[in-house]
Amino acid sequence: MEYSNLRRQIVFMKKNLFDQGYLDEQFNQLEDLEDESSPNFLEEVVALFFKDSSRLLTNIEQATDKYPQDFYKLDSLVQQLKGSGSSIGALRMKNECSVFKANCNDRNLEGCRRSLQKIKREHATLKQKLESYFQLLRQVGPRDYAVSSRK
C-alpha cells in the first residue's frame, strides 16, 4: 500500500538521521510527547528551533566579526545555541557547538570561525532533512501519523 510505503520511508529516514548522528534520543522523547492535545508538538518545536537558531547564528556571525576577541560573549552565544539544539536532539549541531566552545576556551578565533561554518552547515542540513521528514509525516496524515509516531 501507499500508506505502508510512506510509513516505511518515514521509519527509514528517521533511522538514518539517528545513525548519522544528526539526532539523539531527545528527539524521540519529544515525539512521544505528542498526543491528541498536541498532535504536532514535535514539528512546532522544531520550527521554533530553526527560527530561533537562525537568529542566533546571525548573532554569532556578527559577534565574530565585531568582537573577535570577546570570547566570553561568543561562548555565551554558542552556549545558547547548544542548549537550544540539545533540546530537540540536534546531536551533530550540539557537538559542533561544543567544538566552538572549546575554541573559545583556547581563544582560538580561527578555530571559532571554522566551527561556526560547520555549525551552519549542520544547521542547514538538519533543517533540510527534518523538513523532508515532516513532509512525509504530513502525507501520512494526522491519524496515521499519530499511530506511527507512537508505534
Binding site: L30, L33, S38, F41, E44, V45, L48, F49, D52, S53, Q80, G83, S84, S87, I88
Partner: peptide, 16 residues
C-alpha cells in the same frame, strides 16, 4: 529560560 525552544519543550514535558 530565554531560549524559546527549551521553554516550549520544558513546558510540554512539565504538562506531561
Amino acid at each position: 529560560d530565554d531560549d524559546p525552544t527549551c521553554l516550549a519543550v520544558l513546558k510540554r514535558m512539565l504538562l506531561e
